[in-house]
Amino acid sequence: MDIEKIISDVKEKFNIKYNEAQDLDSLEEVRVKFLGKNGKIKQLYGKMASIPDEQKPILGKELNKVKEEINNKLQEKKDKLAAEKKKRQLEAERIDVTLPGHKIKKGSQHPLSIVTSELEEIFIAMGFKIAVGPEVEDEYYNFKALNIPEDHPARDLQDTLYLDDLFLLRTHTSPVQVRTMENTSPPIKIIAPGRVYRADELDASHSPVFHQLEGLVVDENITFGDLKGTIQIMVEQIFGQNHSVRFRPSYFPFTEPSAEVDVSCIVCGGEGCSLCSYTGWLEIMGSGLVHPRVLKMSGINPQEYSGFAFGMGIDRITLLKYGIDDIRLLQENDRRFLQQFK
């Protein structure tokens, strides 16, 4: 038996089929044909019994060699074809990466709330706590306890909406000062944001319903300088460092000395423009040292403690901060407006 020929025949036949196979399925067919249970190699092993004894080891050795060689070649090509297949597959999964991304629905915070939160954070960082009070008040908390007697011209400073002879809608957040002083002993350091009401006709700059933020500090040795320092930090934080602040004498029945706080105009920076009525300054809040009579009425000894208070319109600050020119937009809730404050 010519072992050499047999082996080379097998190799030759394998190589033809091998080269013909161009995908994984036909390659598998080739594997079955040569290395399968009834494959060519198995058949040749079957011939072992019918050949002379001295040839048996030679045939066995050669067959093992061929088997290994075929195996290696098949594996090699299988790897290659598999890699090509995978590549094709991935190429087929190509997407248009310029299609828009999937948007997740996102809500938004109302600009008044944004400014309120911002103010709250500024004051919290300065050691303030937050206090709240009812929107329906009575004469005592809204006026009398704040040193605003009946039949005093100071009543003209704000027009009040009444519910009946006993109750009214608070015209400022200042009643929260009184309620806080009644229930807390100094040191007191609070802000009180909230909704307030005035008998004002609705127009571009007035609203019967708006929002204020009140501040109150009562402790030993509180000074007018402390008021100035606190307000200055707040203004820098909310409007930016490059704004100057000025304090000028004013009148609020519940503070003495009283001061109006102006900030240099955010549009013209002090040059004068229509926003600031060509004065270069914008009025942003009222403030002052708590009137000793107010302290006393709320049970705090003015000889022992002093304090300062301030109050600002959140709506006004919101309008100034974002350059909104009509206060009515704040409570109209047009989506195209709300969406700008995300």
Binding site: M126, G127, P187, V217, I222, G225, K228
Partner: peptide
């Protein structure tokens, strides 16, 4: 009048 800050050191929040 110079600006100062209240002396109290109680934390806010």
């Amino acid at each position: 009048i110079s600006s100062t800050r209240p002396a109290s050191s109680e934390p806010g929040g």
